[in-house]
Write a protein that binds this DNA or RNA. Sequence first.
DNA 1: GCGGATCAC
DNA 2: TATGGTGATCCGC
Length: 571
Amino acid sequence: MMLANDQDEEGLGSTAYNAEAGRVDVRFADSISLKTTALVIAASDKAGMKGAPRDRINEIIARESKGSLFMQRAHHLAEKDGEKIQSLLQRLNEKDDQSDNWRVSMCEDTIDPQLERYRSQRKKVSTRVVVDLDSFFISCHILDNPELDESPCCVGGPKMISTSNYKARRYGVRAAMPGFIGQVLVKELSGGSECLTFVKSDFKLYHSKSAEVKAILQEYDKTLKMCSLDEAYMDIESYLDAYFSITEGDRDHAAITKRMSNSDDDRPPLQEMASILEIKEVTKNLLHSIRKRVHRETGLTCSAGTASNFMIAKIASDMNKPNGQVFVGPSEEEIRTFLSPLSVRKVCGVGRILEKFLRATLGVVTVADLYAKRAEVNFLFKPATAQFLLRVSIGYSEDSRRESEGGERGDDESAQRKGMSGERTFQPTDTWSDLCVKLESIATRLAKDIQSKGLKPRTIGLKVKLANFNLLTRTNTRQVALFQQAGDGSTQTLVDIAVKLLRDVKRAFVEEHKDKAGFMVRLLGVRCSNFRLERETQPSILQFQKNACDVQLDQLEPGHPLETSAGLSST
DNA sequence: GCGGATCAC
DNA sequence: TATGGTGATCCGC
């Protein structure tokens, strides 16, 4: 199993790879209520489960979740989705009543020319690669502790699972599932013979293994981007360029990398140095040997997808998991053949909700359906979503040539980051003093992180999750950023603002709910964003003094000092 | 700018 | 005993 052989098209059981299996009768758009549990569970339909007894798994999950506050909310949300779906259907009907030709003209006039422009911009070669480490977290632990893999195990605890091994997945145990349900699944489906093992997460370990993998992959693309600890986005075009520019006998990895670093001299484009077929062969072999190297040097297996853009490469990387790879050629036909039968849910960016809306309003399940209904899609969805879905329908993504020209100099930090936050879940409580203590702890820890990164946020946000899982947020944007100077009291200010926001939220809540009270909270979070840019022009001395004055005024706002662990008046 | 939603991992 | 944490984006105010 550890051997790197890609059993192409094998594995990946019943999910969307099969066009027919993906097809679901659509006419139940109105009988939402009975289906809600199914719709919630349907999220567990991704990769990994081979001969899993899906029906029994769903039964058990439904039984164990029944009546929980979490599920109650899920049902409530599903009902609201149902209403939205009805209103969309209505809009579609009205459109049809008023014109019976609008689809054709919309395609001819706007959509198809646009899609044709996209097609003409496609890359001519498949050099984008997504490498994805297989069940990364738990695999890291298994390296140190191989016996773990002999039985179902996962990283996480009774509350939440973050990754499971493949033995566990066969019982339906997967990421984002509460651990206690996983335990029941394993117990019942194994007839009591097996038990789910929990392993505590160890992010130091993950970071270190991830860095090992990154170092290897960087030899093939210096500019690769790690999108997360277990996912690398790379472009092997330069590597292939160097490969083909070396005469056949001398092509080894050392020579190629040397050639790569030496030269940015203009070579002819890749597709002129070799035939498409030749490139394909070389690429497949290259990915093979990269994966073998990763395995040999880190002990981890990974899966890879190669295509002419990252959207397709990402999907392809998931196709033959674990320890497999898929190559999708650059031609229009290869792309269509690959994508058409796939569930739209496979596409990064199409989540549970969008999938549901597409299916319930238009009967769209596969990418081919999406293309067939492109006029309806364009009419029904918001501009950004519609544009995105149209691109998906033909498998186009632009993969913006990044490498920020901003020329970030030494600090590659801060420049890109949009926000930083901390949050924590706890036993639901409505005790004001407890909430303040927790909030202060979260905010001060966040303050440290902010400072250590040298960030200067202007916007402070509070996030509150009630015991019934309802989410509330409040933000406050200030004229003057926090943390501009060490020791300027920003940490305390952050805490104070957070507490003030919490009081606002609570006030609004009791206002709205009058008699039925219970501001029961299960999570608090603080977020900093809207960072003052590093390269921003420094304020003049005068300006600076004015700003310093603002800080003073801000801190003396009415309601100050605010209660924290020290002062505890309830509102 | 704000608050709610959605999405990925 | 009972469903996470972090970061990002979009929409309609």
